[in-house]
Nucleic acid binder design. Sequence first.
DNA 1: GTTCTTTGTCACGGAAATGTAATATACTGC
DNA 2: GCAGTATATTACATTTCCGTGACAAAGAAC
Lengths: 236, 236
Amino acid sequence: MPESTILIVDDEPAIRDMVGITLDLAGFSSLSAANALEAHISIIDHKPDLVLLDWMLPGGSGIELARRLRRDAVTANIPIIMLTAKASEDNKVQGLSEGVDDYVTKPFSPRELVARIKTVLRRANGNQKGKVLRVFDLQLDPTSHRISIEETPVEMGPTEFRLLKFFLLNQEKVFSRDHIQDAVWGANVYLEERTIDVHIRRLRKALSDIEGAAIDYSRLIQTVRGAGYRFSVRPS
Amino acid sequence: MPESTILIVDDEPAIRDMVGITLDLAGFSSLSAANALEAHISIIDHKPDLVLLDWMLPGGSGIELARRLRRDAVTANIPIIMLTAKASEDNKVQGLSEGVDDYVTKPFSPRELVARIKTVLRRANGNQKGKVLRVFDLQLDPTSHRISIEETPVEMGPTEFRLLKFFLLNQEKVFSRDHIQDAVWGANVYLEERTIDVHIRRLRKALSDIEGAAIDYSRLIQTVRGAGYRFSVRPS
DNA sequence: GTTCTTTGTCACGGAAATGTAATATACTGC
DNA sequence: GCAGTATATTACATTTCCGTGACAAAGAAC
């Protein structure tokens, strides 16, 4: 699963660092910005999956930034979590209700922060896992997390599942091992080159171990010597 | 019926306390919030069954909060009762268009408040409940809060009941532990990962401890390694 | 109060999955 | 044919993930 990118907007470097480390440990990649302007540029440049926005930015521009993000169609769907001081103390907070997705009150535990981020991300992305992918009588259903060939369930490990999904979504194209690694394992993972081959083999084996299938689906995963692999319905 | 949770949103502590006591006596459990932000956090976290919302929150954000709750799919179905100082036609018209379910004008009698709450809750519940969930000879009756297999009552704890209900309503889909936690425990509750497993086990155990059942219903709760759990009538 | 139930956490063991190295096989250009 | 390179396959150690029993705290029933 490609990790989500989170932008931290806070004027205090200590908080940015602390939150950044927390997010890294939780498997997110993080960006940071010290003020609303920096934040806006970063959002446009990197399109983070979520913005952690300090309410009390100098100049009170936190809420303005949130409003601006919501108004612009390009950024309107990026979830925002507000970092606020204690809720009960703050009366200025009343005017908000802009499309903020959740609030976290300082001080917060890393654990709580991560939990809320995951919840918001799930709510934002989650409900569309995608349609059933089909090739002949091979089916991959992302929702139920099942693979079948002619109605017969196919067993494979999680990595092979992601690999097959990647191929089904990107047919008829050759991908280098590096590219496959980025897409299936994530960007900052180091693997031996041969490791990809092994997983390709496991996937092929899983697809070919089907009793009485009309087609040998393992043949759809084609080796392109010197280039990588390709999923194709056309014989090589 | 398990007791409903009501969130009281009012800036005056005296009113919050008074209403809180009234609700407790009537068999509800209550939460309270002093402003719109607190209220919103509380709603996201605890998913109350109904919100009692003061119309005249400082900053006039009561109506904004109502509007916001209606807009977000997660909170759109939570009934809202407005507390207003005076029943002016303007309020009613505007409020109704925001999807407010009822009005109570201050000062109100505890008795009247409770009566209206019950009415609104009944109306809200009536829409979704009543349907018995069935899979083969496994039945879950939300109304009577009972579960049976081939007419034999099945014993389980409240958490397992909610878990099973969730599964019955969402069959053939994989859910991560995080997702299950959100749906069954509430959005921002912190549990150890293994805790879900333990409850899954308890549910499976409850379903499998049935004498003379034609099917082992615990098998319908399937483990999807690396992904989560799935309730399915198809063998894994 | 006592007792029973429910609940969340922990620790341990086993099973599946993963990544790597070693070896075997296939392909390419000569 | 050969040498050199790329890929396939196998085997294995390690890691990750899940199931399970035990336990203590908190609450409900008595």
